[in-house]
Nucleic acid binder design. Sequence first.
DNA 1: CACAGTACAAGACGACTGTCATATTTGCAA
DNA 2: TTGCAAATATGACAGTCGTCTTGTACTGTG
Lengths: 216, 216
Amino acid sequence: MTSMRFPKAADTKEMRRNHIIDTATRLIARNGLEGVSVRKVADMAGCSRGLVEHYFRNKAELVVEANRWVNTAYLERVSSLRKLSGLALLEGQLHNLLPFTDEILDEWRVRSIFFNRGSADQQIAKDSNDSFNQVYVEIWDALKYASAHGEIDPSVPVQEASELILLFVIGIAMACLLSERLRERRPLERRVNMILGMLKSGDLSALRVGDPSVEY
Amino acid sequence: MTSMRFPKAADTKEMRRNHIIDTATRLIARNGLEGVSVRKVADMAGCSRGLVEHYFRNKAELVVEANRWVNTAYLERVSSLRKLSGLALLEGQLHNLLPFTDEILDEWRVRSIFFNRGSADQQIAKDSNDSFNQVYVEIWDALKYASAHGEIDPSVPVQEASELILLFVIGIAMACLLSERLRERRPLERRVNMILGMLKSGDLSALRVGDPSVEY
DNA sequence: CACAGTACAAGACGACTGTCATATTTGCAA
DNA sequence: TTGCAAATATGACAGTCGTCTTGTACTGTG
């Protein structure tokens, strides 16, 4: 009697490996690191523990890969914005960074876990840091272009503004994890407009866009 | 042969219960929810599993209490700022919110975990949301006073600015979890000055304070 | 075809988990 | 003092965990 095996073999090893990482990522997003085990990952991925162990030396390595997975996911999405520049590029970046979709929301669910893990695991801290650094630089580039082409107020210091935007984005994403209302389209668009408005006018009065949410 | 018991009995039940919650909180901060077990909590607290089970129906209840614990910790600290108002009060709030101390850093380590848990556990989402809402309102109050007394630029919309500040703070805290350099005194002071500067002048040029960190 | 190495599955094991049940001790009321 | 309830400790159990080991199927190369 032949036992069930993993989806045939036409697809490459790389794909199978990625499929396992993706499965682990989804599990981490929904249940945290406590809710993920080699067995659960294997079951959900439709394979055996042995296969997971074949591709990853141990659970820790799988977890590290899951962290990298969500970080590269964003970078791959924004690579499709290559044709944009300046504020239009920034707006595109924000739409791929803020939890406009369930996919992005899951990415932040995972990142929230690794914010904590970074304190105990140097590798994870480094990977996460590198990733955010990359995002930061990309935002900075967009702002430099925007500033050079008069799209934003010339008094705005682009580097510091880039920091502010990235940290603001992280805060928004974390808040969205706690409140379903905040992750609706309207409030998210409002945040984007707050950022764009501030940059264009160069002052905080531009924060007043649309109807403010009475509740945090 | 008499077996070792918990620290005598002079202290009230409330104190013992809180001691257990505090222990659990520290464990969660360092190892995440995966690294906390009833046994570890009992060992670290210097008591038996039975006692933990006596005060908390199950692990989930203990975890919920740990979440509330870190949130009330902040509120108790800022209650000592009662005499301040306006921008001075805001500055005090920021010093008790940003990870200037290891204690506060641990609070954020715990919060980062519960940002994720909020997606799966309604009780935790509600508790965390309520807590952040309270912080938001307190910042808002400080800004209203500051605005009414001419401490900040009159064009700054205080409600939206309060949102911005809170979300910015969350972002800063999360970034600090990943980078030891960012949680040094200097960079943190710089963030505080960025916020205060923006409010006073009402525009983003005030973001340029001190030496910018070249790296995110 | 043969054979080697990889891809995959399953067994087994010891450690750890949450929780229920069962002691034992303590503190207070009668 | 007795007695009873709360406080605290320990035993036991059925799961689950990570991972080491072994077994089987596949696939490409000679």
